[in-house]
Write a protein that binds this DNA or RNA. Structure first.
Length: 678
DNA sequence: GTGCGAGTATGA
DNA sequence: CATACTCGCACC
């Protein structure tokens, strides 16, 4: 903050005068026993982001820096300030000689700690994200800066050891023609951006660790975000294999506040410059950030459930642009958003060679339709057609077999027992579901019970709950393959890893254990169930889950899909073409004015408040307002949609709306920009 | 959100 | 005219 040339000495002097006046006034009016503290000689003004939940107060406020705190008050430190009659937490974002505030400045109440927990980069990121998601900086900062732990803060953060000789590079990158150039750029300090489609069976943690090591060896920091703790553990092991101990930290939820803060400090102090973690790690203040990596960006664990609901992909891409870093967006599957990045040329496509894919896995479809499956005597007991049963039997001689089955209760809708036609309400066509063990099936939309249901397609009167769940599946498979070890991994009891011995491993999507040397075969059961949902991302999400399971196969292994070979998502899996699928999906969404070619936002709340908000919203000309629709709990929701180019204008309008509503004390509405599930 | 001053209602 | 209350707005 430097004074303009034409007023060299004037501004600082003015501020000092103002501050002194404020102290005089405070003395006079309150007649405190102790004299008001002197103010710092140089840069007596601290700009502070105060932790207030109100949108219209979401901006820095200026405070006078007492001389006693002169040393410690620097950008990024925590302070306590008097604000609207209460003592609140704040973060110093800047210090300067002058203030724009016309009144007198209150002094900082207390310097909580001289530890600089908010770097300028993360402060800027919080600005970007608050703007983008129409939320407040305070909310973003609550996600970005972990709670202080005084004991952990007293401990020093030992520096990372010198980088030793690196082991030979893993082979997997050779399957991607562009990878060598990409990795070279990383090492040389460049900022290449790529969307990477991993080959099934690839040891992706080793490949990510290699990319991280190249960047690190070139003198820069790395940030890797993965969906869950299981992936963090895998990546940690890969990083240690590659670089040795002590070069990275893991930032995950559920490791306790002390550990969390200790690891955060190791990063903010620059003692560690490689970070791997789950979504909270996206905010890690890595020094000299050179590369951000996001694995499986389609996993909805990357979507933050707390306001303002930022998505890790968005957070990392904003950082990459602002901090000029390289980007690696990897996965076995490809999200529509990732496809959009390659389509617009924002990122390169680090696609695998066709030949490598052919070597990696053979995907076959078994049991053409569920109808056929039902007529097959084998399928009666195991939901597996004979051909599949034989393949699994053979694969079991070579190693473990993964069987993916949809989670119990994943789809609660009922279907015709005979032809699998989804059961629909006779009145409103909504899905029928079982309310409880004794109640008759009822419509999930209008609530009408239907005791005399008959299938509209075949006239059959029997209903089946389509999901059998992993426990039942495991039991059936145990009977079908006597003497074979059957393990399950789902829900509360998730296995991280299984050994190479023959076993049937039944897992729900996302809970698949890694096999030490990969699975001899991967079987996908009940694929029609994952496709039975009706939301926007059903097919993309189903394909993602299948690809992630098939990704665990050992090189040269096989995958078997029980499903409809004519379905586009099943075809994309068989041909292993998630990129092409995402590309087509992306084009379709563009035609239908859906994200990512459009930007959507939802406004949710009491009907009156939502209605009011829509009236108040100064949306861009091109905006469409859809709804409101009832979403239960006396709440309703509208969707606002604009072409992507108008996205920033929509965000700005929504932000302004929140500030106006907060200032006028109107009933709160919840705003979500680009919500994942719609 | 809280605190405060202006403005309005109410009553001795 | 004194006191009690609501309303609106600033909050550094």
């Amino acid at each position: 903050m430097s004074a303009p040339d034409e007023q060299p000495e004037l501004l600082p002097g003015m501020v000092r005068a103002t501050v002194k006046a404020s102290q005089a006034k405070a003395r006079a009016t309150r007649a405190r026993t102790s004299a008001a503290a002197a103010v710092a000689e140089v840069d007596p003004v601290a700009r502070v982001l105060v932790d207030v939940p109100l949108a219209h107060l979401d901006r820095p406020f200026d405070y006078a820096v007492p001389a006693t705190m002169d040393e410690g008050v620097r950008p990024g430190v925590r302070v306590k300030v008097r604000f609207a009659g209460q003592d609140l937490d704040g973060l110093v974002v800047d210090r300067g000689a002058t203030s724009d505030h016309p009144g007198t400045l209150a002094p900082l109440r207390r310097l909580v700690s001289a530890e600089r927990v908010l770097s300028p980069e993360i402060a800027a990121l919080a600005d970007d994200l608050a703007e983008r998601y129409a939320g407040s900086r305070a909310d973003v900062l609550r996600l970005a800066v972990p709670p202080r732990h005084a004991t952990a803060e007293k401990e020093p953060s030992p520096p990372a050891p010198p980088l030793g000789e690196l082991p030979p590079a893993p082979e997997g990158w050779a399957d991607h023609p562009l990878a060598a150039a990409y990795l070279r750029h990383l090492r040389e300090g460049g900022s290449p951006r790529a969307v990477w489609g991993a080959v099934p069976g690839a040891d992706w943690p080793a490949l990510v660790a290699h990319a991280a090591a190249e960047t690190y060896a070139g003198g820069r920091g790395v940030l890797v975000c993965v969906p869950d703790g299981k992936d963090v553990a895998r990546l940690e092991r890969a990083l240690v294999d590659r670089l040795g101990e002590g070069h990275h930290v893991a930032l995950t939820a559920g490791r306790g506040p002390a550990a969390r803060y200790r690891e955060f400090l190791a990063v903010s102090r620059g003692a560690r410059r490689i970070v791997v973690g789950t979504r909270a790690a996206a905010f890690a203040p890595v020094h000299d950030l050179g590369l951000v990596v996001l694995w499986d960006d389609g996993d909805d664990l990357h979507s933050e459930p707390r306001a303002p609901y930022p998505h890790v992909r968005e957070t990392l891409l904003l950082r990459a642009e602002r901090e000029g870093t390289a980007v690696l967006l990897g996965g076995f599957a490809r999200s529509v958003e990732a496809a959009y990045l390659t389509r617009t040329g924002w990122a390169h496509d680090l696609a695998p060679e066709r030949a490598a894919l052919r070597r990696a896995v053979t995907v076959g479809v078994a049991g053409a339709t569920e109808w056929e499956l039902d007529r097959d005597p084998h399928a009666r007991t195991s939901r597996m057609p004979r051909r599949l049963h034989e393949s699994v039997g053979r694969a079991l001689e070579r190693g473990p077999v993964l069987v993916q089955t949809p989670r119990l209760g994943y789809a609660t809708a009922l279907a015709c027992e005979r032809c699998r036609e989804p059961a629909r309400c006779g009145r409103c066509r909504g899905p029928l579901a079982i309310g409880g063990p004794t109640s008759p099936p009822a419509c999930r939309w209008c609530g009408t019970p239907d005791e005399a249901w008959a299938c509209s397609a075949c006239g059959h009167r029997g209903l089946r709950a389509p999901v059998l769940g992993d426990a039942r599946t495991a039991e059936e498979l145990g009977r079908a393959f006597p003497g074979v070890r059957v393990l399950t991994s789902s829900g509360e009891r998730v296995l991280a890893e299984v050994d190479g011995a023959p076993a049937i491993v039944v897992a729900t999507p996302g809970a698949e254990p890694v096999a030490t040397d990969g699975y001899a075969a991967v079987v996908l059961l009940d694929t029609w169930l994952l496709l039975g949902r009706t939301d926007l991302r059903t097919e993309e999400e189903a394909l993602r889950r299948w690809c992630n399971a098939v990704g665990l196969v050992r090189p040269g292994g096989e995958a078997l899909v029980v499903g409809d070979p004519a379905h586009p998502a099943v075809q994309a899996l068989v041909r292993w073409d998630p990129a092409g699928f995402a590309e087509r999906e992306s084009a379709q969404r563009q035609e239908a004015h859906l994200p990512p070619a459009s930007r959507l936002a939802t406004i949710t709340g009491e009907p009156g408040a939502v209605d009011d908000a829509v009236t108040l919203l100064a949306a861009p000309e091109s905006a469409e307002v859809l709804g409101p629709v009832d979403v239960g709990e006396d709440e309703c929701r509208v969707v606002v949609r604009v072409p992507r180019a108008q996205g920033p204008a929509l965000s700005a309008a929504l932000g302004e709306l929140q500030r106006v509503r907060s200032a006028r004390k109107l009933d709160a509405v919840r705003i979500q920009v680009d919500p994942v599930g719609l």
